[in-house]
Design a protein around this nucleic acid. Structure first.
Lengths: 236, 236
DNA sequence: ACAAAAGTGTTTGTCGTACACCCATGC
DNA sequence: GCATGGGTGTACGACAAACACTTTTGT
């Protein structure tokens, strides 16, 4: 559906101003200790069987952010997730059907909550590290958004958006290690996050693990939002 | 000229797809110990006598970066300056003549080298702190780019692009103080920059100052570019 | 009892910050 | 000789990094 829409629109546009604006969403998830990205199989003949980002033409009268929200929701059913505009790609020949300038967004979703809506196309979560070739310039867009995410995650505690509401410190550490592609010291990591005083100890434990169960926490989004307004400092 | 172009294009566009793409450039300079931005007086009747950023419609077949370069060059005569894409503003009603989605850039120029080309409109350097109301959503765009600059300047030594080739440490400090709007300790500032080992002591001194003249330095861009590729660390 | 991961403190080094005095020049 | 800004070093505190053992649970 995505690609057909694009094509249908493009045929109209090409005869007029020869320019269209789209949004592309890099939808990140976290599962099995890996950072994943949601991709769809392109049905453009030029990119047969290649994977591409989720995107669509921006409609007349539609805000850019709204278009990105719409794409996200139409594919995952998710709403009100963390999303950030990253960069706009305007290469003259980036789309075979004509000039399409695309505004790239990334979003962070709880992969368990996503109810994928295929609309016919194949739609899968791919480990970010394993994605190599993509349709259009989408690999470049993915790389750009991934770099932005790495940067963001060391400045602000946004990683929680990728986790279930209840999580252990080990899961949180695995998330950071996966995103940043580094190994971190467990004690220092715990110390740092606990001293932020933004984790709420739920007095619950993991279940069904073949070893000592970990305590579960939730992130105090409200407290962070309030604090953010006051501090505005560097780092969390 | 800017606005007339926009209007001429828009009249055409409006009858068709009702969407155009433009670039807007936030051109920063540094003079008289103040951060300045180059603005032009709008000649749109809706924004009579208000100041606006320098921008233009992206031409068919023109890359976005190329459009931004073109705008910069046509107004300042400058080429190959530091420039970075920041964000795209797509508010449906941001332009009174129709839908114009604009990609915002900021650039850092040596204000002494800029040879302003007015093309009829008033064109002036304004202290960033003194800019309040602007045409369109340009104040929002300016604020956004300024925030990005603040962020950038504490991560990478890009400020040199705003200075003459030869500068004193005092000038450099004034630049940082102006951009970040803070007071810095002179000794710590000198220590930090000298320890980066990217300043070349020119063995020259200021002239015509009514006090002890300061040593002059230049920034070693080549060394920084090489080092950047190896380190990729945080901070300079 | 064994395996597997959870949980916990201390030490060390680095870096940022605060701070005051002498120096060189023009007038 | 005085006013103005240039140039310099040290001490302290905070935070990041390195590092090993005990505890809890399931099998």
């Amino acid at each position: 559906m995505q690609s057909k829409n694009v094509n249908a629109h493009l045929t109209e546009i090409r005869d007029y101003f020869k320019m269209a604006v789209s949004v592309d969403c890099v939808i990140f998830g976290f599962d099995n200790d890996e950072l994943k990205v949601l991709l769809i199989k392109s049905d453009l003949k030029e990119y047969k069987d290649m994977w591409s980002l989720l995107g669509d033409i921006v409609r007349p009268g539609e805000e850019l952010d709204a278009a990105a929200d719409r794409v996200l929701k139409s594919r995952t059913g998710l709403d009100q997730v963390f999303m950030e505009q990253v960069q706009t790609f305007g290469g003259v020949h980036r789309h075979p059907a004509g000039r399409v300038i695309t505004v790239a967004y990334y979003s962070l979703v709880n992969i368990q909550h996503a109810a994928l809506k295929k609309h016919g196309n194949e739609l899968h979560w791919h480990p970010v590290k394993a994605v190599h070739e993509m349709a259009f310039d989408h690999k470049e867009i993915l790389d750009c958004c991934y770099e932005r995410l790495k940067h963001k995650v060391i400045e602000q505690p946004v990683g929680f958006n990728l986790l279930p509401r209840k999580f252990s410190l080990r899961e949180l550490q695995n998330l950071y290690e996966a995103i940043l592609d580094v190994k971190l010291d467990r004690r220092n990591f715990r110390k740092k996050f606990l001293s932020m005083d933004l984790l709420v100890d739920l007095n619950e434990e993991e279940d069904d693990v073949p070893h000592r169960p970990a305590r579960l926490y939730k992130f105090n989004f409200e407290k962070y939002d309030q604090r953010k307004k006051r501090y505005l400092g560097i780092g969390f």
